[in-house]
């Protein structure tokens, strides 16, 4: 019985982490769907989300709903700017050049912000906008941070669903992910669609950054690297380019990471995630939901 309660508790923690990974993975998967590129700088958008909300709380004392809106808006603008400045000139360049540029953007953001003039490379404590309050439900306990993370994630996913499957922009985006050239021939401004995709991804990553630093209240300019890579793995796991795949992949990665830390050792958790990635790349490179995408 003891172990069952412990398992449930860890499962709740895993879903909490998985929700953040799912939010980041959506940005990777949408950008990959449209441009066929791995946006390496996406993890840094996540980091910027954490820092922007840090300033939102400490400097401006924003109420939580406005904090979420402003963080996501700003990160969306930053993601669009990065796309316009760094990626757009390389639209017809080889894939690897785009990847290297993305690595460059990521390094630039990290090291520029780690200068002493900006945020410095040190860890900063993140002030939670709420007091932690635990609720005992039956045998296990759940706190309000969990509940906020779950509800914000569910609301964001619902909005994203409406945007992608009901709105005109969403239809154009899905068309672009099938074939960018043909979409352009159909008279759709694909450049706008690409910017829109980056914007949505950036907004979701920004929200992810805010939620993550509420759950693990320490922020640092290099905090985006590992969650970024793991979320990309989540996107690969669910089938890259597939929206609901990224969400499922995020939860799988989050839950397995928490379980490895709980039952083996937290030093092994990164290693286990990459072993999962290797197994998937070798035996099911198209991911869980992937069907007819061009094979790796």
């Amino acid at each position: 019985m003891e172990i069952l309660i412990y398992l449930t508790q860890q499962f709740i923690n895993g879903i909490q982490l998985g929700a953040v990974y799912a939010l980041i993975a959506l940005g990777y998967t949408m950008v990959y769907g449209v441009l066929r590129m791995i946006n390496f700088a996406h993890g840094d958008i996540f980091m910027l989300g954490a820092f922007i909300s840090y300033y939102g709380i400490t400097k401006f004392n924003l109420p939580f709903p406005i904090l979420i809106l402003s963080t996501s808006l700003l990160t969306a603008v930053i993601a669009i700017l990065i796309e316009k400045i760094a990626y757009k000139p390389l639209r017809n360049a080889p894939k690897i050049s785009l990847l290297i540029t993305a690595v460059g953007v990521s390094l630039f953001l990290e090291y520029t912000l780690s200068l002493n003039a900006f945020f410095t490379p040190n860890y900063i404590g993140f002030p939670r906008p709420f007091e932690i309050r635990s609720y005992d439900i039956g045998m296990f306990s759940i706190n309000n941070i969990h509940l906020i993370i779950f509800s914000v994630t569910i609301i964001s996913l619902a909005l994203l669903y409406l945007l992608i499957y009901k709105s005109k922009y969403g239809i154009a985006m899905r068309a672009a992910s099938h074939d960018l050239e043909i979409t352009r021939l159909m008279g759709i401004r694909t450049d706008n669609i690409i910017s829109f995709t980056f914007g949505i991804g950036g907004a979701l990553a920004g929200i992810g950054g805010l939620l993550y630093s509420m759950a693990y209240p320490q922020i640092n300019v290099f905090m985006g690297i590992m969650p970024g890579i793991k979320s990309f793995i989540a996107a690969v796991l669910g089938g890259i380019g597939i929206i609901h795949g990224a969400v499922l992949g995020g939860f799988i990665i989050g839950i397995s990471e928490v379980f490895v830390s709980a039952f083996l050792s937290s030093t092994y958790r990164d290693g286990v995630i990459f072993i999962i990635l290797f197994i998937f790349l070798l035996f099911r490179p198209n991911g869980i939901f992937g069907k007819n995408i061009e094979k790796v």
């Binding site: 791995i38 894939k95 990847l99 690969v236 092994y268 290693g271 990459f274 072993i275 490179p285």
Partner: peptide, 28 residues
């Protein structure tokens, strides 16, 4: 043997993953 069947960005991610795996092994 296994990872060179992948191409471009997927090869990049697989080699990156190997790098992190080695880092974890060295740490332990």
């Amino acid at each position: 043997g296994p990872i060179l069947r992948l191409k471009d960005d997927f090869l990049a991610i697989a080699t990156l993953g190997f790098g992190i795996l080695v880092r974890v092994i060295l740490d332990n």
